[in-house]
Amino acid sequence: MFVTVEEDKCVAGGQCVVAAPEVFDQRDDDGVVILLHEKPPVEEFERVRTAATICPAAAIRLTESLPS
């Protein structure tokens, strides 16, 4: 699994951080998402899928191969 985020779409809701804190964080100044791991470990897949599903801005993209 590969994860990408669209920072310009992020509304700083923080749901991704709650769902998958090992993969996502937020900037201190504006709360915009920070991707910590573009290729998370298998143990994180379910949490990352949840984060993508609950993101209010749909700013998280998951792919099975490296995005081009």
Rank of each mutant, 00 (worst) to 15 (best):
V42S: 14
G14Q: 06
E7P: 07
P40S: 03
A19T: 02
P41K: 12
G14F: 05
D8V: 02
V48G: 04
G13K: 00
Q15M: 14
V3R: 06
R47G: 01
T4V: 05
D30N: 13
E22L: 10
G31P: 08
A20D: 04
A19E: 12
G31M: 03
K39A: 13
T63L: 11
E6G: 03
S65Q: 15
I54A: 03
L62E: 10
A59N: 08
C10S: 02
V3L: 04
A52K: 10
A19L: 03
F24I: 01
R61L: 12
A59G: 07
A20E: 03
D28E: 15
I54D: 09
V33R: 05
F2Q: 01
K39T: 13
R49V: 06
K9L: 14
D25K: 09
I54C: 06
A58Y: 10
R27Q: 09
G14M: 05
T63R: 12
E43W: 04
T53W: 12
E46I: 07
K39V: 14
R47D: 15
G13A: 12
K9P: 00
V48S: 04
V42E: 15
V32T: 10
L62K: 11
A52P: 14
C16T: 07
V33E: 07
V11R: 05
A12K: 06
C10N: 06
L36P: 09
P67G: 00
I54Y: 06
P21H: 05
C16V: 11
V32W: 01
V18P: 09
V11H: 01
V32P: 00
